[in-house]
Each structure stands twice: as structure tokens, then as C-alpha cells.
């Protein structure tokens, strides 16, 4: 029995060391933000078996193409990636073909525009960063591929959602700088992006009512997927790996105890 408790004691020592170090060391330098604490949404992709809601992702893609894509690119996504949103092969071809891309040079040495193919990256609204700045009051609309990862410290998808629904009338007495908008979620409450969403600004193809909350939720989930497309696979494999290691650990504990009984006699 004494050996038993020793095994447990030793395991506890190791476990507590790991926990201690993991909690003490990686202290994130969260910049003290003056924004109000975010309302946490119940995202389906949180948790051990989290997964994306594909209907919501497809609506989010509609919000992105019809609203965000006017200014923001997503240069790490390809149209073929939309298959993961539950679109069929033919639908992806059709969705890609709604866009035109520059290609070339052809046999005559000329550049030409053609319909986008599933293998193309999402088209960019501006030919380059300088053009994007000129068109946007000298502010560069950032690429959205990894926006949720960039904003991980501010809350990730929760932050995107809060930003989408955070446009308010500036309180009395506060003066906004030229070209800035009041947003409760953004640092300093001033953001250069004009309010992108209005009630019913788009018609969802599945007939869902396009409220600002709905669009904000869907586009936030879409961006969460875009930043971390392997999430579902990762969590699925992770559970199996941990179960396997757990079983292996039980075998190893039995083996170790069996071996060490001889050393103590």
C-alpha cells in the first residue's frame, strides 16, 4: 500500500510542477484595455468536441462577400476551401466564378481577366496596399484571414461580434476625430471602419432574418473558421490521442509497479 501512495505522491509532484509552470510562466501581457468586458457568445466551436455550425459559416461567407469584401481581402483562403462550409463541388465552382481575377501573360504576352477558379485565392478588393490606403482615408483595411487569431487577446470571435454590434452614437460631449466612428468594443472607442452592417443589408440565401446580431455572429464564426480551419480535425484527433495516451499510461503504471515490487523486497 505504501508503494501505492508513493506512486500517487510522485505523480502528484510531477503533475503539480507542470500545472504550476504552465500557469505561472506564460503570463500574457494583456494590455489593459479600457473597453467594457466582452459578452461571451456560446460558440459551437468551443469545448473539447467543438465544431463549426456550417449553416452559420455559409451565412458568414455571404456577409463577408457582400459586405466586408468591399474593403478587406482574405489572401490565405482559396475558393476551394469553401467545400469545408458544406458547399458542393459545383457550388464552389459557381461561387468562385462570381469573381474575376487577373491572369497572364497568355501566349500573346498579355495579361487578361478570367473567371476565378476554385484553386484561386479570394480576390482582393484592391490591387495593392497603397491603393487600399488611398481609397480608405489613408487607413489600410487589414486582411481578415487571421483576424480572429490576431485578436485572440481581445477575445477572438467574441471581439469580432462585439465590434460588429458595437457601433453607437457617440456620447454627449465626446468629440470624434474626423473620419472616425464610435464603437464600444474598439480600443479607445474610435475606429476608422464605418459601420458595415445595417438591418437587412443582405438577403441570406437560407431566408434567415439579417439582423445586425445575426450577421455579426455569422461573420465572426466565419472568420474564426478562416483563422483556424483545422479546429474540428484537431479536436477530434486530440481526443483520440489523449484517450490513447491515458490507456498507455495505465499500462505503464501497472508495468512499473510490477517491476518495482521486486526492487522493494
Amino acid at each position: 500500500m505504501k508503494k501505492n501512495t508513493r506512486v500517487i505522491k510522485n505523480a502528484l509532484i510531477i503533475a503539480s510542477c507542470i500545472v504550476l509552470l504552465l500557469t505561472i510562466l506564460p503570463i500574457k501581457s494583456n494590455a489593459a484595455s479600457e473597453t467594457s468586458p466582452l459578452e461571451k457568445q456560446s460558440w459551437p466551436f468551443k469545448g473539447i468536441l467543438g465544431h463549426f455550425d456550417k449553416t452559420s459559416l455559409r451565412r458568414g461567407y455571404e456577409v463577408y462577400t457582400q459586405v466586408c469584401a468591399a474593403c478587406h481581402g482574405m489572401r490565405f483562403l482559396h475558393y476551394r476551401d469553401l467545400r469545408e462550409l458544406g458547399y458542393s463541388k459545383a457550388q464552389v465552382v459557381a461561387l468562385a466564378a462570381l469573381n474575376e481575377v487577373e491572369d497572364g501573360p497568355n501566349d500573346e504576352g498579355e495579361y487578361y481577366s478570367r473567371l476565378a477558379l476554385p484553386s484561386d485565392i479570394f480576390i482582393s478588393p484592391f490591387p495593392n496596399d497603397a491603393a487600399a490606403r488611398v481609397a480608405n482615408n489613408n487607413v489600410l483595411p487589414p486582411d481578415l484571414s487571421l483576424m480572429v487569431a490576431e485578436k485572440a487577446a481581445q477575445g477572438g470571435a467574441d471581439f469580432i461580434y462585439a465590434l460588429m454590434i458595437g457601433y453607437k452614437e457617440a456620447p454627449e460631449g465626446s468629440e470624434l476625430k474626423e473620419g472616425l466612428y464610435y464603437n464600444t468594443a474598439f480600443k479607445g472607442q474610435e475606429i476608422a471602419m464605418p459601420p458595415p452592417l445595417f438591418e437587412d443589408i443582405i438577403d441570406f440565401s437560407d431566408g434567415t432574418e439579417a439582423s445586425i446580431q445575426q450577421m455579426g455572429f455569422d461573420v465572426a464564426q466565419f472568420l474564426a473558421w478562416a483563422a483556424d480551419p483545422s479546429l474540428e480535425q484537431r479536436k477530434r484527433i486530440g481526443l483520440r490521442v489523449i484517450i490513447f495516451l491515458g490507456i498507455f499510461l495505465i499500462i505503464a503504471i501497472m508495468y512499473k509497479r510490477r517491476v518495482w515490487t521486486r526492487a522493494h523486497s
Binding site: 507542470i18 484527433i237 486530440g238 490521442v241 489523449i242 499510461l249 505503464a252 512499473k256 518495482w260 526492487a263
Partner: peptide, 23 residues
């Protein structure tokens, strides 16, 4: 003796590692 003991420790460590990697 030591191999069995080390394997056990490695597995405990690996479980912590897997939790970070996957979750």
C-alpha cells in the same frame, strides 16, 4: 527499473503536451 519509471513520466508529460497541442 528506470525504463519503466521513465516511460510513466514521459506519458504523463506527453498527456500535458497533447492537451496544449490539441486544445
Amino acid at each position: 527499473y528506470i525504463t519503466s519509471k521513465d516511460s510513466l513520466a514521459i506519458l504523463v508529460f506527453a498527456i500535458g503536451y497533447a492537451m496544449v497541442v490539441f486544445y
